[in-house]
Design a protein around this nucleic acid. Structure first.
Lengths: 216, 216
DNA sequence: CACCGTACTATACACTGTACGTTATGGATG
DNA sequence: CATCCATAACGTACAGTGTATAGTACGGTG
């Protein structure tokens, strides 16, 4: 019987376990020690495979980005753009930790590059010049990131009864004299904090603006 | 001489000190104990004024939102929208911690409501119906949040030589065969990770799309 | 003067990431 | 087969974190 069995770990196994923990306990409450315990291993064992916690974060992020589907080739470019943006949003909704993994760290990794390649290719083939393609890519990416992070954030809030109660309190404490529009639009604002319709509304605004710049 | 002098603290003083620490040491590296030490006080003293760390975060965020200027009234609504979005971005650039304070927590506080009131009022006065106004408000807010957070993130990355070197390495490791667009557009992508032009490009796309829906 | 709420202190706990040094194992080599 | 060594995993330790709990002394009010 081996006292310290070897080769029981691997980068992939650690990434999978880390992902499970992030999704069950949230990005807060996730810890290297938790992952190590789950694997029945000392905390320092992970440092054989990752230089530090951020390094593990990057690996998990890249693993998730690898789940994004390829861009369909038999549709017009606006549909392709829509597909890429929607896919990323759906992946973020399915794995809420991805929001924080994307906003907190710089992009890196091959899977992440593959996603960028997909969108950039669509824009280039549509005829946009290099600068416009790059600008559009950044704009679309940051829109999806911001909108979906917000959506996830608000959904989590709604699930926490204490936070939800406090939000109602602050809303009700606003006088209709000082904040007429906020008070009047409170129901609409509550309804537009997420959902497919809200996301597509912003995405359509961007696409409509983009169509006006369609090359020849 | 008073052994334990009283009333030396206040919410405002704590918020100001916390803000200073966040801006000098970054949102990481900020701690309740750090604030307390700066004030020459035990860590638990802060709990007289704030229920926990998140509560302090909310107060700092609302304080910063109070610095946003009022919307000018003598220009057309698209210019007003542009003004609000640019103002928020500039404030975030001036106080980088604001990015994390805005994305990590739900909105609350009177100053924050005042900002929402400003933008919603502009949209309502422009003639948009309640639902469209709310949707547009959320879209604009999440765009500014996402784009500017990303900009700040990338700027910080560029200042860290180690991270910058690693980014160059990953870029160069991408084969031009598998990632033609990414490799070809690398210089443009590096140039479009921030800056006024990049922000205005996305904002103009949104505004152009919005103009198509101008009521009557 | 006596009292009490409150502003602050002191101590303690459970937890974090990770630096450092040690040990034993499996595969390659002689 | 015997030997050696790179390395996978260990254990210990440290400097932090947020905050629960209990205690203390002050300032305003009766």
């Amino acid at each position: 019987m081996a006292r310290t069995p070897r080769n029981t770990l691997s980068s992939e196994l650690i990434v999978r376990t880390a992902l499970e923990l992030m999704e069950s306990k949230g990005t807060d409450g996730f810890s290297l020690r938790g992952v190590a315990a789950e694997l029945g291993v000392g905390p320092m064992a992970l440092y054989t495979y990752f230089r530090n916690k951020d390094d593990l974060y990057d690996a998990v992020r890249d693993h998730l980005m690898g789940l994004l589907p390829a861009v369909p080739e038999d549709v017009e470019w606006p549909e392709q753009v829509r597909f890429v943006c929607r896919s990323l949003r759906l992946l973020m909704l399915q794995h809420p930790c991805l929001a924080q993994l994307l906003s907190g760290r710089p992009l890196s990794g091959h899977e992440t590059a593959r996603v960028a390649e997909g969108l950039l290719g669509v824009l280039r083939r549509a005829g946009f010049d290099p600068e416009t393609a790059a600008r559009t890519h950044t704009t679309l990416f940051t829109y999806v990131l911001g909108a979906t992070s917000w959506e996830i954030q608000m959904a989590a809030e709604r699930r926490d009864p204490e936070a939800w109660r406090r939000l109602r309190m602050t809303m009700e404490s606003l006088s209709a004299r000082d904040f007429p529009s906020v008070v009047e639009l409170a129901p609409e604002l509550a309804r537009t904090t997420g959902g497919d319709e809200q996301f597509d509304y912003g995405l359509d605004l961007l696409l409509a603006g983009l169509r006006l710049r369609t090359p020849s």
